[in-house]
Design a protein around this nucleic acid. Sequence first.
DNA 1: CGCGGATACGGACCGTAGTCCGGTTGTACG
DNA 2: CGTACAACCGGACTACGGTCCGTATCCGCG
Lengths: 203, 203
Amino acid sequence: MSAHTPPVLLPVAGQPPRERADAARNRSRLLDVAARLVAEHGAANVTMDAVAAGAAVGKGTVYRRFGDRAGLMLALLDHAGRAFQEAFISGPPPLGPGAPPTDRLRAFGAGLIEHHLRYRDLYLAAELPPDRRYTDDPPRALYARHISGLLAAAETGGDTELLTETLLASLDPALLAHLRAQRGMSQERITAGWTDLVDRLLG
Amino acid sequence: MSAHTPPVLLPVAGQPPRERADAARNRSRLLDVAARLVAEHGAANVTMDAVAAGAAVGKGTVYRRFGDRAGLMLALLDHAGRAFQEAFISGPPPLGPGAPPTDRLRAFGAGLIEHHLRYRDLYLAAELPPDRRYTDDPPRALYARHISGLLAAAETGGDTELLTETLLASLDPALLAHLRAQRGMSQERITAGWTDLVDRLLG
DNA sequence: CGCGGATACGGACCGTAGTCCGGTTGTACG
DNA sequence: CGTACAACCGGACTACGGTCCGTATCCGCG
C-alpha cells in the first residue's frame, strides 16, 4: 500500500458514479420528446421507435435509460407524482402529518384517486406485466408503507399487511379507469366509496 | 309470401349457425395441444406459433377460434372454472344457496382464492390489456353479479355496485399471486384476511 | 349426386417490444 | 496534453402477437 491510497476505482457501492454528460442530455431529450408524443397521440399510440427517432437517438439508448416501455412511462409520471408524494408525506393536514390517521387515510385515498384518474392513460400504458406489477414500482411501495403506517397508528386490529394490499387494490389505476369510463361512475362517487370503505373498516 | 316460408336464410340472430365439423375438430385439437404445452413449459412460455404448429394448423386458425392469446388461455380455464361456478350457483351451502348471504360471501371468497391460486400461471398468462380486463371476461361478470346479489340480500347499506368492485379487486389473480409468491403469505392467511374483510364490512 | 355460397384454412406479412455488439466518446488521471 | 478505460451509442436483429386474403372445404338444398 502506498502512502496515499488512490482515489476510488471501484466507486462506493450503491452510489452510482454519476451520469455522463451526454447520457444526461439524452435522457432529458427523450423525456421531452416522449411527453410531446404522448400529448399529441395519446400514450397508447406512442412507440419506442418513434421516441428514439424523435430524439434523434438509437433505440438502444432509450432502453438503456429506461429499461422498457413501462419504465419510460413511469419516468414521465415521476414528476407529476412527486407533488402528491410530498403532499402526503410532509404537506399540510389532513393529507400530511397532524391529522388523525383515519382522516389522513381518507384524504390519501381521495388524492390518489384524483391522481390516478388524471393521468389514467399514462398509467394504463405504464402497466407492468403481472409478475412485476407489485415489485417494480417504487411509488406503489411508498403508498403501501404510508397506508400501513396509518393503519398501525389507527390501532385497528387484524392483518395490517393484508389490509394494506386490499386497500391499495381498490385504488388501482386500471380499476379506477374502468369504474369511470365503462361504468360511468363520477369521481365524486368513487371518492365517496373510498370514504365509506375506510369508515366501515376503521370506524 | 308462399304457403310454406323457406328455411332460414338469415339464421336466427343470436343463434350462431353451429360450428362446422372441421372447425370443431381443430378447436379441440388446439385446446389439447395448448394444455400439453402449458403443462410442459408453463403458460408464460407457450407461443401462439407453437400451439398452431403443434396442432398442425395455420396461425390464422388459432386466432379465428380464440380471438387472441388471452382468449386461448381463458378457454383453457373455462373447464376448470365451471365446477366452481356451478358450486356457488347451485351447489350445497354455504357456497351455494341456503346459507345466510354473509356466510355465502365468506365461502365464495375462499373458493375463488383457492381457484385463482391453483391456476395462477394460467391466469397471469390470460390477463387482458387494462382497458378490456373488466369487460371482456365473462366469469368475472358472473362473479360480480353474484357478489352484488349477496350484498343486496345482506341488506348492508352503501354503494353496492362500488363495494362489489372493491371486493372483487381484492380477489384479483395477479394480486393473490403476488401475496403468495413475493410476499410469502400462505393461502390460509389470505383466506383469513378475506373473512376478516367481510366481517368488517358486513358485520 | 352436384352445385353454390357460407365458412374455414394456411401461412406470408406487418408492427412493435426488446436484445446485442462493434465502434465511439466522455472523463479521470498522470 | 495524452492515454486508457468505462460508459455510452446506434441500429441491425430477433421474437412474438396479431392481421389479411386468396384458396380449399364443408354442407344444405334441389
